[in-house]
């Protein structure tokens, strides 16, 4: 808790969102999933920080933005350990883990080149069949992929 506070203070975020405890190997995938590249907000990204809980972690801080819950929960696919802090006036007003939904529509590409979803203009759809580690199964071809290895659309 104390280290968390220190890091949050360094960024001096008045208002916004801090996504913490993202495993380092998937940090930039998480950035991609949140669509941060196209944002005008003040963004700070840290990586390979020491974490007691998960070894090396990454952290994303976005000023003046509160992401919709469905967007944040995309992160659970690759980083089920991630924690979302909502900041108001330099204070953490909400802190919650990301939640992986049972069904994931239109975020991930199916790993099977012979899948209809890779050959037809349509939304992909996956069912979560394992949560630790995260494993998802294609609704169409039944191909399974580990969440951390999933290719983001």
């Amino acid at each position: 808790m104390t280290t968390d506070k220190k890091e949050l203070a360094v960024a001096a975020l008045r208002n916004g969102t801090v996504i913490d405890r993202i495993p380092s190997p998937v940090l930039f995938k998480a950035v991609e999933l949140l669509g941060i590249a196209g944002m005008d907000s003040n963004v700070t990204i840290g990586n390979n920080l020491d974490s007691k809980k998960i070894g090396k972690k990454g952290i994303i801080k976005v000023a003046d933005v509160e992401f919709p819950e469905t967007v944040l929960n995309r992160i659970a696919l690759i980083a089920p350990s991630a924690v979302v802090n909502t900041i108001h006036d330099f204070n953490v007003t909400a802190k919650r883990p990301v939640v992986l939904p049972d069904c994931i529509v239109g975020i991930v590409r199916c790993g099977n080149p012979k899948c209809i979803s890779n050959n037809e203009p349509m939304a992909t759809k996956f069912h979560v069949v394992g949560r630790n580690p995260v494993v998802i199964r294609c609704h169409y071809c039944n191909h399974t992929i580990e969440g951390a290895k999933a290719q983001i659309l």
């Binding site: 012979k114 209809i116 979803s117 037809e120 609704h139 169409y140």
Partner: peptide, 10 residues
């Protein structure tokens, strides 16, 4: 019958 997997579900 289709050569692509998941075609019938779709």
């Amino acid at each position: 019958r289709h050569y692509l997997e998941g075609a019938a579900r779709y």
